[in-house]
Amino acid sequence: MSVDLGTVRHIAKLARLHVEQEQAEALVGELNKILGWVEQLGELDTTGVPPMTSVVERSQPLREDVVTEEDSNSAVLANAPDSAHGFFVVPKVVE
């Protein structure tokens, strides 16, 4: 499997990541090198091996479904680049 400029553009789009043209070209080589390197995992027969989901075995913990935080609207918005009337502000999404 090899990555070309179109693939780099596609995954950059999926990741919502602006990449300059020059960098995108460099990334083609870098990503191919890294992917070529990780492909050595294909040497291993993993038939029937369960993919790891949790590194330390344990049961799923449950807690009481209770409110633990008081109203923290201003704390939540404190680092927002733009906010108004207690909400985050984003560019217009509905015409």
Binding site: M1, A15, L27, L31, V38, L41, P50
Partner: peptide, 25 residues
């Protein structure tokens, strides 16, 4: 970008799941 690629449709099993299996080993 690498992470997005290995999780994307068509490559998830070949890369991400394979790696999680090797992690078990």
């Amino acid at each position: 970008l690498i992470g997005t690629y290995v999780l994307s449709a068509g490559y998830y099993d070949a890369y991400y799941n394979k790696a999680r299996q090797v992690r078990t080993l």
